[in-house]
């Protein structure tokens, strides 16, 4: 299995109920998996645990055959090789589009970096916007920059946290298609979180439903909430 999560548990404070409770599931290489659940069901937390932004209270995560979280192991976020598109995109406001995209390419030499930047700009169709700052772009363009930035260092998996929630309804369907095309072209394993069934229907190969941290089922097993 490409991603193997076993008995993962998490809570924000000792006083609270666990947000995620002994959760296990797996993803195959190249799969685009959608997670659907109501707000507060722990789906964003799951992404943050996978990314290394939160620490689980128990359980283990393996990524591409490597143990990244276990009882005695914790690989820091910056060493996991995980890409993430944030709900608010988190584009650095003081950097241009190309500077944002190149931010994670520090291991590359200059010509290589330039080549990768051009590839990314082409992939998301933003060649003319390279010198702009994030606030000079539309919501959909910002989202594509965020996607390009996350994909540029060739992460082993891409995590997307409600990437369409900030977009106008009439733009949404168009941008969903775009994102699906980009993901297919990039040929990447992707875990995608949304509260909107239509988002995951349009993009994902497989859908998982979670509710308050416990796995309910996938569509293949035809269990719905």
């Amino acid at each position: 299995m490409f991603v193997d999560i076993q008995n993962l548990s998490f809570r924000y404070s000792k006083k609270q109920q666990p947000v995620i409770d002994r959760f296990s599931f797996t993803i195959k290489k190249g799969e685009i998996v959608g997670i659907v659940g109501a707000s507060g069901s722990g789906k964003s937390t799951l992404l943050r645990l996978l990314a290394g932004l939160e620490d689980p209270t128990a359980g283990s995560i393996e990524l591409d055959g490597r143990l990244i979280v276990g009882d005695n192991t914790y690989i820091e976020a910056e060493k996991r090789g995980v890409g993430m598109v944030f709900q608010n995109y988190a584009l650095f406001p003081h950097l241009t589009v190309s500077e944002n995209i190149c931010f994670g390419l520090h291991k590359m030499k200059r010509p290589e970096k330039k080549k990768r930047l051009d590839e990314m700009l082409e992939l998301v169709q933003l060649q003319e916007f390279a010198k702009r700052y994030p606030h000079e772009l539309s919501g959909g363009q910002q989202q594509r920059v965020a996607l390009a930035r996350a994909l540029a260092p060739s992460p082993s998996i891409l995590l997307m946290d409600e990437p369409f929630s900030n977009l106008d309804t009439n733009l949404k369907s168009l941008i969903r298609m775009e994102v699906r095309d980009i993901l297919q072209k990039a040929n990447i394993t992707c875990l995608f979180v949304s509260h909107d069934q239509a988002d995951v229907d349009a993009i994902c190969d497989r859908i998982i439903y979670i509710d308050c941290a416990t796995y309910i089922g996938s569509d293949k097993e035809s269990i719905t909430v």
Binding site: E78, M84, F86, Q87, A90, F103, A150, P153
Partner: peptide, 24 residues
Amino acid sequence: SYREASFLLGRSMTYTFWKVEFPL
């Protein structure tokens, strides 16, 4: 999320501070 995005792009804590937090 600015800081988190920088970590996920493989940058260290110190680099993140100087290039992302400090300018802001």
